[in-house]
Simulated assay, not measured.
Amino acid sequence: MTTGFGTALDTDIVRRAQQGRRDAQRQLFETFQRAVLSSLTGLCRDSELARDLAQDVFIQAFDKLPQLREPAAIGGWLKQLTIRTALAHFRRPQLVVSEPEAMPEPDARDWLSQTDWLTQQDDIEQLLSILDDHERQLVWLYLVEEYNHTELAELLGLPAATVRQRYHRALQKLKQRSNT
C-alpha cells in the first residue's frame, strides 16, 4: 500500500471535493494531512510554521481544486502545491550578487557520493539544522522529496548549474561540520 502523496484516493471522492462537498474535503484532508505536514516540517524546521503552512496549503487546495483536471493526480498536485507554498513563504527579494569565487561544476560522481554519505548519517535532522533555510530546503527537496536538479532549477527559478553548485556546497558544509 502506498502512503504519503502516493496514496490512492477514490476519484469520486476527489470529484465530490471539487464540488465543495465538505465530507469529501474532509476525506481528502485526512488522507493527505500527514504527507503535507511531514514535507513542510522538513522544509521549515519549525513545527508551528509547518502547521500554519499546512493550513494554507489546504485552504488553497480546496479553493483551486475545481481546476484539477485529472482527479487521479491529486497526490502529485497536492505535493506541488505544498512545496510551492513553502518556497513562497521563504522567498525573499534577492539581490543579484555574483557567487563568491565560482566553483567548477561538481562531477556527478562526487555529489552522488556525498549524497550517499549524508543518507548514511545517524541523525540527518540534527545535521541539517546547521544549514540556512535555503540550503536545507534544497537538500530536503533533493533527498527526501526526490526532486532532481533540473526540476529544482525550474521550481526555484535558477539555472541547473547553480542548483547543483549550491547543493554541492551545502553537502560540503555538512561534511565539514560532521568531521569536527
Score class of each variant (00 low, 15 high):
Thr2Met: 09
Thr2Arg: 11
Phe5Ala: 01
Phe5Asn: 03
Gly6Ala: 13
Gly6Tyr: 08
Gly6Met: 08
Leu9His: 10
Asp10Glu: 15
Asp10Val: 09
Thr11Ala: 12
Asp12Pro: 00
Val14Tyr: 02
Arg16Gln: 15
Gln18His: 06
Arg22Met: 10
Gln25Lys: 13
Leu28Gln: 03
Phe29Asn: 09
Phe29Gln: 08
Glu30Leu: 14
Phe32Pro: 04
Leu37Asp: 01
Ser38Gln: 05
Thr41Gly: 01
Thr41His: 01
Thr41Met: 03
Cys44Phe: 01
Cys44Lys: 01
Asp46Tyr: 08
Ser47Gln: 06
Ala50Tyr: 00
Ala50Leu: 04
Ala54Asn: 02
Phe58Thr: 04
Phe58Asn: 04
Ala61Cys: 12
Lys64Phe: 07
Leu65His: 06
Pro66Gly: 02
Pro66Ser: 05
Gln67Asp: 13
Leu68Arg: 07
Arg69Gly: 11
Glu70Val: 13
Pro71Gly: 05
Ala73Pro: 00
Gly76Leu: 14
Thr82Cys: 04
Thr82Asp: 03
Ala88Cys: 03
Phe90Cys: 08
Gln94Phe: 03
Val96Cys: 04
Glu101His: 10
Ala102Phe: 09
Ala102Leu: 13
Pro104Phe: 05
Pro106Met: 04
Pro106Trp: 05
Asp107Trp: 12
Arg109Pro: 00
Asp116Gln: 15
Trp117Ser: 11
Trp117Asp: 10
Gln120Val: 00
Gln121Asp: 05
Gln121Leu: 10
Gln126Tyr: 07
Gln126Glu: 14
Ile130Asn: 08
Asp132Met: 05
Asp133Pro: 07
His134Asp: 12
Leu138Asn: 09
Tyr142Cys: 05
Val144Gly: 00
Glu145Phe: 03
Glu146Asn: 14
Asn148Leu: 09
His149Glu: 13
Thr150Trp: 06
Ala153Trp: 07
Ala153Gln: 12
Gly157Ile: 11
Gly157Glu: 09
Arg164Leu: 14
Arg169Gln: 14
Ala170Thr: 11
Lys173Asn: 12
Lys173Glu: 12
Leu174Trp: 13
Gln176Ile: 10
Asn179Lys: 13
